[in-house]
């Protein structure tokens, strides 16, 4: 199909891909190496490209000097719950948008897509007041609800793409057999779409896990803080402690990376589902 069987072509291709891989992985490697250096040697010259001795001092310091375990726990709870709720809500909406034609459908889709164009800061002040009125400021559950709302638009679009890959005859058959629409959806369609749903869930999870500004705005107490808010706190306080910072960065990246390693294929499918139609 492509005429790059020539030796030169192959070498170029392998070198190119190799360089891309190095370019991609190096920053992650570098923060990892930094985190394992002894705090005293982080600023040492010449730079060391691999830690001569592994030191866990940065991690130890991180957990001693801050409530990092609590932040991790908060992020885990908030992201898990918000991603799940958002996936369920989006699943229902996506089903309707994938299967039916109705007058206001374009408006709903448009309203969802416009949320992607809005700089979040425009709404933060009003959101804070709204949340205060509902007694949801400085509450992890309050943050969950906001995260659900923020996740819904993209998640719905992704899931809609997955629905379109599943023939309607499946649920029609189930409904002929006496299932309600809802039970047909959950008993017949959901099992078929498991990879897609899992991917959407992970996508939501990672977005919530990484979210910074809403978390900083809506949570106050240290005991409610999420990981990104804590990272933000590390830079702006007294010193930029690159040792603790690198350890914290590694701990915050690893979970999402493991999830992505498993789900990247399906996330790609979900993202491309709507757009790629050649």
């Amino acid at each position: 199909m492509i005429n790059d069987y020539s030796l030169a072509g192959r070498i170029a291709r392998i070198t190119g891909l190799g360089l891309c891989l190095v370019f991609t992985l190096f920053p992650l490697y570098w923060i990892l190496v930094t985190s394992f250096k002894d705090p005293g040697t982080i600023f040492a010259y010449p730079l060391r490209y691999w830690p001569t001795q592994f030191s866990l001092a940065n991690y130890q310091g991180l957990f001693e000097q801050s409530n990092f375990a609590i932040y991790l726990g908060n992020s885990l709870i908030v992201s898990t719950v918000a991603a799940a709720l958002a996936t369920v809500v989006s699943l229902l909406a996506a089903y309707v948008l994938a299967r039916f034609e109705f007058v206001s459908k374009g408006a709903v889709m448009g309203a969802f897509l416009v949320t992607q164009m809005i700089p979040g800061f425009i709404a933060l002040g009003s959101l804070y007041i709204l949340m205060t009125r509902m007694y949801l400021v400085d509450s992890r559950w309050g943050l969950v609800l906001v995260y659900v709302a923020v996740s819904i638009p993209l998640c719905t679009v992704m899931l809609r793409g997955f629905f379109e890959n599943v023939p309607a005859s499946l649920e029609e058959a189930a409904m002929v057999d006496g299932c309600s629409r809802l039970s047909a959806l959950f008993r017949v369609l959901v099992p078929v779409m498991t990879p897609g749903i899992a991917a959407s869930y992970i996508f939501n999870f990672v977005n919530c896990w990484n979210e910074l500004f809403l978390s900083v705005t809506l949570l106050n107490s240290d005991s409610n803080k999420t990981v990104p808010a804590a990272l933000n706190g590390f830079i702006s306080s007294f010193n930029i402690d690159w040792g603790s910072m690198s350890a914290a960065a590694v701990l915050s990246i690893v979970p999402t990376m493991i999830l992505f390693a498993f789900a990247s294929r399906y996330i790609v499918q979900g993202l491309t589902a709507g757009a790629v139609k050649e």
């Binding site: 900083v216 106050n220 107490s221 240290d222 933000n232 706190g233 830079i235 702006s236 306080s237």
Partner: peptide, 8 residues
């Protein structure tokens, strides 16, 4: 006590 990062 609530201790937000200084710059915010």
């Amino acid at each position: 006590l609530i201790s937000p990062p200084t710059n915010q």
